[in-house]
Design a protein around this nucleic acid. Structure first.
Lengths: 153, 153
DNA sequence: ATACAAGTTAAAGTTAGCTTTAAGTCAATA
DNA sequence: TATTGACTTAAAGCTAACTTTAACTTGTAT
């Protein structure tokens, strides 16, 4: 089964111009062309397009994704390079998650802060509250918040 | 205690030009100026700058952060608006984390895939392996990967 | 055979979030 | 008081990742 750029774009939920852009940047060394010059995507190409999508979600640049696609094209000689790239990217994503979790805790504190402010009509009440007087469940968030401020001092 | 733009920038580990840019964009309605026109950051301003940093880490745009800073400047009348903004942002960050966790699982599968390929010298072995023949701990990652591919069909 | 939607390219445009530049001012130290 | 490093502004420049435009071609449906 073969697909045009528009059909494949629909499958991936991206604009056709995006796939053309990726191709221009060398991310799609595997696509073939019809006699008339039109891109012909194969079923198996979907696999690699999904890997591109996955790497993009990790924040990898187009340029680095191209490097990977070139390696994949070269075959088994580049297995170790590809392994290293995935291991590195995995570490990066783990760090991103950890960073977001910290941020989330600050947001949780701020939600409590404004909920309390809303209940009493002023931010001065939650602002003045000491860590030991906070509800048990928000205390760790407040501690993280304090840590962040202390760090910037 | 008062700080110049350079001193405050150092505390926050950003370039002075970044703070000037934020000021120009209206993110810092609280900073005062010396007679000579120089920005004078107060100790309490650090708090708000850290909030800007936090909101940035959630992916919030400069424009939306400005909206929040304006609300904060207006005082207690905007408590509910600010609460809603933090609640929404919290949901967004939770979704981001969940998305990254899915991506991480794919990466974990790929790490196993290339480790196995490395051991045997070819990707054809891990590629051909059926889900039920995988090590128990990678099976869920493979299942997620299959799901993703099925979804794009 | 013809119409026409969807494909092709190169090149220009867009957006966000800064950074750099240029020309000039402020303020702390010798 | 003179120097000097850090400040000020407006405006231009930068980068990534696309998107849009314009002029043209392909391939399918009638």
């Amino acid at each position: 089964m073969l697909y045009t750029v528009g059909e494949m774009a629909k499958k991936l939920n991206v604009a056709p111009s995006t796939l053309r852009y990726y191709d221009k940047e060398g991310l799609l060394p595997f696509i073939e062309r019809s006699d008339g010059g039109m891109r012909m995507f194969k079923d198996e190409d979907l696999e690699l397009l999904l890997i591109i999508d996955c790497l993009k979600k990790t924040g990898m640049s187009i340029k680095d994704i191209k490097t990977f696609m070139d390696w994949a094209q070269q075959g088994d000689d580049t297995i170790n390079l590809r392994l290293q790239m995935f291991q590195e990217q995995r570490k990066l994503v783990e760090a991103q998650i950890s960073q977001l979790q910290d941020t989330l805790d600050i947001l949780k504190y701020k939600c409590w802060y404004y909920e309390t402010a809303k209940a009493v009509g002023t931010t001065s009440i939650p602002r003045a509250m000491k860590t030991e007087d906070l509800p048990e469940d928000v205390r760790p968030y407040k501690e993280k918040y304090d840590k962040m401020r202390k760090h910037a001092k």
